[in-house]
């Protein structure tokens, strides 16, 4: 009936869980786009990661090994995209969409033997008495290792893009691949690495769904999360902490609308279901209306093919 039924600390903790798959996938895509490549196949790489991670975890009994398997699966599919777009110079938008189609199909084939199985449990990290702290303990010290990994990855990507030499080269490739090439950087190699990283992250995001958040394997279980990840990269103006903010905001609105319903707040449900998307658009508009900021983020070579010999 009233909002007091909602435990806000618990809500924050569960929005972190809800947001982590898209956070991981969006971080990967951020690096890919910073290298000047637009890979719309995030959904396909996520779902392949979801089944690879699930299958490996079930076979080995270890979720950790499962996550490695997921990263490998996602990266492998991403390499198909890399070969097509970087070597064979195919259109990135179309190739990305084809990647999604292929990923959805192949994951369903691989997953046929894994329906109705429970994966090994990914344990929460043990922080001892810290976990029992009110509010802070619930929000900060009561998660599985992938949540902390994803947060560490945000910081790592931020540092890499901003301060490291590798990040500088990556950005240079994304801004102006001809100039980067003229300076002697191997544009195609760098982009291959970025695309593979993006695939691995998407795979991890998918596996977080199938191993922790849901946890089970079912066909099509990503249900559009990959597309949201793509939206969040632009929403973030191509900044790592913006991705974090975007993913948590989206996860937050999703979880909040379910909580409002559960609390019996009389808001029309169907509008609540639309709200995560509408609010994302609204924030997108507000951020992009500030032209100076929006213009900073987008890599200038985004989506354009690069061919070295001319």
């Amino acid at each position: 009936m009233d909002l007091s039924a909602i435990n806000w600390a618990v809500l924050v903790a569960s929005l972190m869980v809800a947001a982590t798959p898209i956070l991981l996938a969006a971080l990967g895509e951020l690096v890919v786009e910073k290298a000047g490549v637009l890979n719309l196949g995030v959904e396909g790489m996520m779902i392949l990661g979801a089944i690879c991670g699930f299958a490996v975890a079930v076979e080995t009994g270890s979720p950790l090994v499962g996550f490695f398997g997921a990263a490998a699966g996602g990266a492998l599919l991403a390499l198909v995209f890399a070969v097509l777009t970087q070597v064979l110079l195919s259109n990135q938008v179309a190739t990305g969409l084809a990647l999604t189609l292929f990923g959805l199909g192949i994951s369903a084939l691989l997953g046929q033997g894994y329906v109705g199985i429970k994966p090994p449990k990914t344990e929460k990290l043990d922080f001892g008495p810290l976990s029992d702290l009110p509010v802070v303990g619930t929000i900060l010290f009561n998660h599985d290792y992938m949540i902390y990994f994803s947060l560490a990855l945000v910081a790592a990507v931020w540092w890499f893009l901003r301060y490291s030499r590798g990040g500088l080269i990556l950005r240079a490739v994304g801004e102006n691949h001809e100039a980067a090439h003229a300076l002697g950087y191997k544009v195609v190699v760098i982009r291959f690495a970025a695309i593979a990283f993006g695939g691995a992250c998407a795979g991890l995001g998918g596996a977080y769904l199938s191993l922790v958040r849901v946890p089970q394997w079912t066909e099509g279980m990503t249900a559009g999360a990959g597309w949201i990840a793509l939206a969040i990269v632009v929403f973030a103006s191509w900044r790592a902490f913006g991705v974090l903010l975007g993913a948590y905001l989206f996860g937050g609105v999703t979880v909040l609308q379910l909580n409002l319903q559960a609390a019996g707040v009389a808001v029309p449900v169907e509008y609540l279901s639309m709200s995560p998307y509408l609010i994302t658009i609204l924030v997108l508009v507000i951020m992009s209306a500030d032209r100076s900021r929006a213009a900073l983020g987008a890599p200038a070579s985004l989506g354009r093919s690069f061919h070295a010999s001319n």
Binding site: L88, S90, A94, A98, L101, F102, G105, A108, L109, E219
Partner: peptide
């Protein structure tokens, strides 16, 4: 399984996009 058809369509698209390089 319908998934096999989906994967097949994905393959067709990959090949169509891949060989397109020969045109240009």
């Amino acid at each position: 399984p319908s998934a096999a058809i989906q994967a097949f369509q994905g393959m067709l698209l990959f090949f169509l996009l891949a060989v397109d390089v020969l045109t240009n």
